[in-house]
């Protein structure tokens, strides 16, 4: 197996923590999949996404890792858990999936997984680690670069020869503004939609 490739490690702990966080991420993701209790699923999801933030840190993406913890784990999942609790009546907490759907889902998913795994090791450039020279234990200094890119200046693309792109077009100012406005609109809309306008009748459409 590729994972067992016994090369000399550039840094023992980098590999160690990669495996640690990867196992946590995948393990709790499987926990989400196989748990029937919706609150525990949410809890496993928190741990899975938190552990993947650890993977981000290991890849040198400190800012994105912190963003993942802040927005994804600290924001989105709190929202999700609120949603779970607002709808957590005892009959919804654990909803069993029919075993036929399980078989179908796992079969299709397994095929997809095999495909993705084979693709992951196709390209030689992807599967060769960068080695001793690439692993720097210094702080990644990408946060200011990311900030500059959001304001339209690509610090890492200074040698851009194309005049139009060098003039700021390679930055992300416009997408950033669009996404901000989008987020605002979405949050206002969601808050409006989620208001209780009328109570459901007891007979409802419950099957």
């Amino acid at each position: 197996m590729m994972l067992l490739a016994a090369e000399v490690a550039p840094s023992f702990w980098h590999g160690f923590f990669f495996v640690f966080f990867a196992l946590l991420t995948c393990g709790f993701a499987l926990g989400v999949l196989f748990s029937n209790n919706i609150v525990r699923m949410a809890f496993y999801l928190v741990l899975s996404l938190g552990a993947s933030a650890g993977l981000f840190f290991l890849a040198g993406a400190e800012f994105v890792g912190a963003m993942q913890l802040m927005i994804y784990v600290g924001g989105t999942l709190v929202l999700l858990i609120f949603g779970v609790m607002l709808t957590a009546q005892s009959r919804f907490i654990s909803m069993k999936t029919p075993s036929g759907e399980w078989v179908l889902g796992v079969a299709v998913g397994g095929c997809l997984l095999l495909l993705l795994l084979s693709v992951a090791f196709q390209v030689k450039d992807w599967r060769t680690p960068r080695g001793k020279g690439g692993l720097s234990l210094e702080d990644s200094k990408t946060s200011s670069q990311i900030g500059m890119a959001f304001t339209g200046v690509r610090v890492d693309k200074l040698d851009q020869k194309n005049e139009q792109l060098a003039g700021g077009m390679s930055g992300y100012l416009l997408p950033f503004v669009i996404v901000s406005v989008h987020l605002l609109v979405v949050l206002v809309g969601a808050a409006y939609m989620a208001r209780t306008k009328r109570r459901a009748t007891a007979t409802g459409a419950v099957g």
Binding site: M2, A5, V8, A22, A29, L30, V108, L116, A120, G131
Partner: peptide, 25 residues
């Protein structure tokens, strides 16, 4: 032993693929 891997893009892709497939299922 298993911790002695030197991490490459492929390893991240494997984790990503597992997360993706888990999510799809």
């Amino acid at each position: 032993m298993i911790a002695l891997v030197s991490v490459s893009v492929s390893h991240y892709l494997v984790v990503g693929a597992i997360l993706f497939v888990t999510g799809v299922i």
